[in-house]
Design a protein around this nucleic acid. Structure first.
Lengths: 209, 209
DNA sequence: CGCCGCACTGACCGCGCGGTCAGTGTGTTG
DNA sequence: CAACACACTGACCGCGCGGTCAGTGCGGCG
């Protein structure tokens, strides 16, 4: 065995994993600022001090937890976006991925939203910058997808970055609603609503008559 | 004079006003949780204790500040929405109102966003509920406007509440972007982009050729 | 001019947080 | 079985916050 995972490593990874899951649950319940280390420790069933064996401080815990979850989301969405299919199908597939992700990780949404407008404790300007940059790079990627579709002649020319913002946040709003609802409608219905609204518009057309 | 405003009342209103303005500025800079009473007092140029002569506690200060600003926004937007004009014009006008409002009150945006996902200090569940309800009632109103347009045959039938969510948050995203930009494009351009995207869609149509 | 009321002040308090570290119990080793 | 290593614990600390209130000084009135 070249890289044997020792027993200790397995245990350590398990602890880290369960601490991050506990963090997500607590943040979902009480918000980022409202989640105390004691809450998280209780949720994970360990003592507060134990957390500091695996994470330097509170910031690192929240940061890593966020990073972990968002990386997975982005991986899935990118898989759907980076194909040669028509824009319509790519949008459908990526929406589907996002909806499924938040169905399984509803607690994560709060963290996801909150990171967009971080609290301005004066010395943490660097971290604020990082998350804004991360968000911006996501929007730029989506904008690039739209721009490509414009070049292909699939959609008309508008500011692609603004279109990406509009589409992404409009979509987020509906996903948030789904997370809140205890019995949301079928995912297909919302995917259809979003994609057809943005591609065809909602105005009555000749073809609708 | 039936209701003479005594000098004291004038002074008092001035203090309340300037404290709320200071609160908006500080929250815009440091976030809701990051804004301390000391910060706000310094910003307003008074001692910390003075704030408590006009507001019971921190919660009331933030609450009143928020209420004050959002009432004005809603008043302006409703004025544009509650007409007999076609949907397209009503959307244009209300967008214009919102954009202008946030151009003049850019600091308010942070407060506006943050209130949507309040921090869950356990005992304040009632207040969370209030703001969610307030947000929901705004969405219901917008949904009603869309539904009326459906009944008039201006737009096709989709879930009006979800359409309202999609439209409103997509719009917010673009307004946020405008607030961040130091030199945003003309408001008309963004109004046009949003309204034509949602009404006509972005797909290339026969009429575009 | 002397007194008083009251808007305003800012040093102070208690609380609850993030973070620490001496102590404990358990599994391992010689 | 004794001695040790070490993951884990939770009482404890200092800090910074929201909130308090005795003190201050200024404007007006007798």
């Amino acid at each position: 065995m070249i890289y044997p995972k020792s027993k200790e490593e397995v245990v350590q990874e398990f602890r880290i994993q369960s601490l991050q899951e506990a963090t997500m649950r607590v943040i979902a319940r009480k918000g980022i600022a409202g989640a105390t280390m004691q809450d998280i420790a209780d949720e994970a069933g360990v003592a507060k001090g134990t957390i500091y064996l695996y994470f330097r401080d509170r910031d690192e815990l929240v940061e890593k937890t966020f990073e972990n979850a968002i990386t997975e989301l982005h991986r899935r969405v990118d898989l759907a976006l980076d194909t040669d299919a028509p824009l319509e199908q790519r949008l459908r597939d990526s929406l589907r991925q996002a909806i499924d992700f938040f169905r399984d990780n509803g607690q994560f949404f709060r963290l996801y939203i909150a990171q967009r407008f971080p609290e301005g404790t004066p010395q943490q300007q660097a971290k604020q910058k990082r998350h804004c940059d991360q968000y911006k790079s996501r929007m730029l990627k989506l904008a690039a997808v739209f721009e490509e579709a414009m070049n292909r002649g699939e959609i008309r020319r508008v500011d692609p970055y603004r279109l990406a913002l509009f589409f992404a946040e409009g979509t987020n709003a509906i996903i948030v609603e789904r997370v809140m609802e205890q019995d949301p409608p079928p995912a297909d219905a919302d995917v259809e609503l979003i994609v057809s609204s943005i591609l065809n518009g909602v105005r009555i057309q000749r073809s609708d008559i």
